[in-house]
């Protein structure tokens, strides 16, 4: 009698043990979900549902109220890629990204390097450089609208003062996109500057001291310490700036409304016009889906490239 008991007991207790562990796992999973619930609900209502709905809409024609009428399959997409206006809009968008992203990064990196020096009153400059972060798109656009004004605008006063012809900043097709790009760069500087300055300040000062003793010059240190150590921050800033550039809307709406000759009709503005001016919710949705895919691909490419170059601590 006693023999089988002694063998059976350890097995039984082992089974209990497994059961207990499983129960713990379920409990901790439930707890985790509980913590995630608020953001799951918010994301579902404001992100996942609209995303799914947009994809759904992109396969239909709609009436003016946005209700689906006819299922057209890929026709919205096909028509879109054959439309010269949409292709122009794509071209403008990519040009716009090309104008704004590198310049924003370079200028704000330069400002951040300046503001990272230990000088008297440097706090004032840091405040000034980051101040555009606190200005809304609308306010900044109106402000630039006056600067760009053909006759009383400050920019044209400089241009004529230097003896050049007046420039129709917002009305000349060759200048309009550049004007919007300048506005956008100026608006993005504050945020980018602040993030880069934060990145610079988190670099260990000992590294520079050690380099000083080794006799490294300023640019040698910049190239071999600052930039590599800043690479995760730079990577983040590049990603965010690119996404922002693709989604530019406010300044277009106020400065040019997509004109002249559709040169500033960037993709988000084009989506807006298609949906709320032309009431073509189906094709607007199709454009939105394309934008989503473009940004997704760009970000994936960046992460793939970035992984090799970026150094994380």
């Amino acid at each position: 009698m006693s023999m089988p008991n002694t063998i059976a007991e350890p097995i039984e207790s082992k089974l209990d043990f497994e059961h207990y562990k499983r129960k713990e796992r379920i409990k901790s999973w439930a707890k985790g979900m509980l913590f995630l619930l608020p953001s799951i609900i918010l994301f579902t209502v404001f992100l996942f549902y609209p995303l799914v709905r947009t994809i759904y809409l992109s396969f239909f024609l709609t009436n003016a109220a946005g209700e689906t009428t006819v299922f057209v399959g890929w026709e919205n997409f096909a028509r879109m890629f054959n439309s010269p206006i949409f292709m122009q809009s794509m071209k403008s968008t990519f040009l716009f990204v090309l104008y704004t992203v590198p310049l924003t990064i370079i200028i704000s990196l330069f400002l951040a390097l300046l503001a990272n020096e230990k000088l008297r009153g440097i706090g004032i400059f840091r405040t000034i450089y980051s101040s555009t972060m606190g200005i809304s798109v609308a306010a900044a656009s109106v402000f630039w609208l006056y600067l760009f004004h053909p006759s009383i605008g400050f920019l044209n006063m400089i241009v004529t003062g230097l003896g050049f012809e007046r420039i129709g900043w917002l009305t000349d097709p060759t200048w309009a996109l550049i004007a919007v790009a300048i506005t956008t760069i100026w608006m993005n500087l504050g945020f980018t500057f602040l993030i880069l300055l934060g990145g610079l300040q988190s670099i260990d000062g000992y590294l520079y001291e050690s380099a000083d003793i080794d006799g490294a010059g300023y640019f040698y240190k910049l190239k071999n310490i600052t930039i590599p150590m800043l690479s995760p921050t730079l990577f983040f800033v590049v990603t965010v700036t690119i996404i922002n550039a693709f989604q530019t809307f406010g300044q277009i709406d106020i400065l040019t409304q997509g004109g002249p000759q559709n040169t500033t009709n960037l993709i988000v503005y084009s989506i807006y016009r298609e949906a709320f001016v032309n009431y073509q919710f189906g094709s607007a949705s199709a454009q939105a889906v394309v934008l989503f895919i473009i940004i997704l691909i760009m970000t994936i490419i960046q992460f793939k490239l970035g992984e090799r170059k970026v150094h994380y601590q």
Partner: peptide
Amino acid sequence: LSMVFQNYALYPH
């Protein structure tokens, strides 16, 4: 001169 720091100041990258 050369110097060795407390936290070694090695370049992590």
